[in-house]
C-alpha cells in the first residue's frame, strides 16, 4: 500500500473540497479516493491496484446519507447505509425482497456490516489478472496490455457483454436487483448534483479500463428504486460452489407482475455471468403477456443468453445461467421452492 494522506470530511462540501478538481486521466487510478466501508478500497490498495495520494473518509456523512426511506413512489437508500442494515430492514424485506436477498447473500456478515451501498455498486472484478499487478496481461488495469484470461483459467469469467479486450465478471449481487428494478443513483460532484440511471452507469467492455460513467470526483449519495407492482413479487437466486461467502457462478434477480397466471411485466437481471450488471430485456419481452410456464421460462432464458460468448472453461455458464433464471422465475411464480 502506497503512502497517502488521510482526511475526514464532515460535510459534503468538505468532501468535495478534499477531492479538488480531478482530471480525466485520473479515472484509471484516482489520486484521491473516498473511503466509506473500506472493504473494497483497502483490499485494492493493499494489492496496489489502487494507490491514491489521498483518502477522504466520508463516514462522517452518515447522518446525511445513512437513511432508508420508503414512500409511495418507491424506496430511497442512502449511499452510506451499510449492506446489513438494508438486508435486515423489515420494509425492504417485505416490499423489495429481491434487494434484501441480494444483499443478504453477498459477502459475509462482517463485510455487510462495513460495506456501504454506494461502494457496493462500484465493486471491481475478482479476475486474478486484474487483482494481481504482477500479471502483465490486463486491459482493465493496463490499457493495451492484453487479456490473459481469454486463454487462461476462465471458469469464473463472463459470457455476456464481454469483448476481446476483457471477459471479467462483475462480482456483485445488489446491483443486479437494482438494475432489474430500474433504479437510479444520485451523485454529487465538482460540477453539482445529478441523477443517473444505474444500468447506464456501467460501461460496456470495449474500453475495460473505464468501468462507469461517474465523473471524476463524483460521489454516489443515494439510490432511488421506483415502486412497481412487481417489487414485492421478487427474488434473488444465487448459484455457487459453496453455500455461502462466495461470489456467484450465476445469479438471477427476478421481479414479476403476474395477473391470472400471465406475466404483465417481468424485470430480470443476471449476475455471475456478465461483464456488468445485466438487464435481460430479451427475456422480459419473451415473457410479457405469456403464462409463466416451464416452457416459456426456458424460452426466456434462451433469449437472455442468445448473445453469450463462452470460453474454454466457462461454457457451462451458458447452461447454468439459463437454468438459474428458469429456477428463479418458477420460484417467484410460486411453482417451485
Amino acid at each position: 500500500m502506497r503512502a497517502f494522506a488521510y482526511i475526514r470530511a464532515d460535510s459534503t462540501d468538505s468532501a468535495l473540497r478534499g477531492m479538488g478538481s480531478p482530471t480525466q486521466p485520473d479515472r484509471l487510478n484516482p489520486q484521491v479516493q473516498y473511503l466509506a466501508g473500506g472493504t473494497l478500497l483497502l483490499d485494492l490498495m493493499k494489492l496496489e491496484v489502487l494507490s491514491p495520494h489521498q483518502v477522504i473518509d466520508i463516514n462522517g456523512l452518515e447522518s446525511e446519507y445513512g437513511r432508508i426511506e420508503l414512500t409511495e413512489g418507491g424506496l430511497h437508500l442512502g449511499a452510506l447505509v451499510r449492506m446489513s442494515q438494508a438486508a435486515d430492514d423489515a420494509r425492504v424485506r417485505r416490499d423489495y425482497p429481491v434487494i434484501a436477498q441480494s444483499l443478504a447473500q453477498a459477502a459475509s456478515a462482517q463485510i455487510r456490516n462495513m460495506a456501504s451501498l454506494g461502494g457496493n455498486l462500484l465493486q471491481r472484478t475478482r479476475c486474478t489478472y486484474f487483482r494481481d499487478t504482477s500479471w502483465q496481461g490486463c486491459n482493465k488495469r493496463q490499457p493495451g496490455s492484453g487479456c490473459a484470461a481469454l486463454n487462461g483459467p476462465n471458469r469464473q469469467h463472463a459470457v455476456l457483454g464481454v469483448s476481446d479486450q476483457c471477459i471479467s465478471t462483475y462480482p456483485g449481487d445488489f446491483a443486479q436487483s437494482l438494475v432489474a428494478l430500474g433504479a437510479t443513483v444520485e451523485t454529487v460532484g465538482p460540477t453539482g448534483r445529478r441523477s443517473v440511471d444505474l444500468e447506464a452507469l456501467y460501461r460496456d467492455a470495449q474500453q475495460p479500463e473505464l468501468e462507469t460513467n461517474l465523473l471524476p470526483g463524483e460521489l454516489i449519495t443515494g439510490i432511488r428504486v421506483p415502486a412497481g407492482p412487481w417489487t414485492r413479487n421478487s427474488a434473488y437466486l444465487k448459484i455457487r460452489d459453496r453455500v455461502s461467502y462466495e461470489f456467484a457462478l450465476a445469479s438471477a434477480a427476478v421481479a414479476l407482475d403476474l395477473s391470472e397466471g400471465r406475466v404483465r411485466e417481468a424485470r430480470i437481471a443476471l449476475g455471475g455471468v456478465s461483464y456488468r450488471p445485466w438487464r435481460a430485456r430479451e427475456a422480459e419481452s419473451v415473457l410479457k403477456g405469456q403464462p409463466l410456464t416451464q416452457a416459456n421460462a426456458t424460452a426466456a432464458a434462451r433469449a437472455a443468453f442468445a448473445t453469450a460468448r463462452p470460453r474454454a472453461q466457462n461454457a457451462f455458464k451458458v447452461e447454468l445461467g439459463q437454468r438459474t433464471l428458469v429456477r428463479a422465475l418458477l420460484q417467484v411464480a410460486g411453482q417451485t421452492s
Partner: peptide
C-alpha cells in the same frame, strides 16, 4: 501458459464455510 497459480487467496481457493 505461465505455470502460475491463479487462485492464491481464500476467496478463490475454496474451503468449506459454516453453511
Amino acid at each position: 501458459h505461465h505455470a502460475r497459480y491463479v487462485n492464491t487467496d481464500l476467496a478463490g481457493y475454496l474451503v468449506p464455510v459454516a453453511a
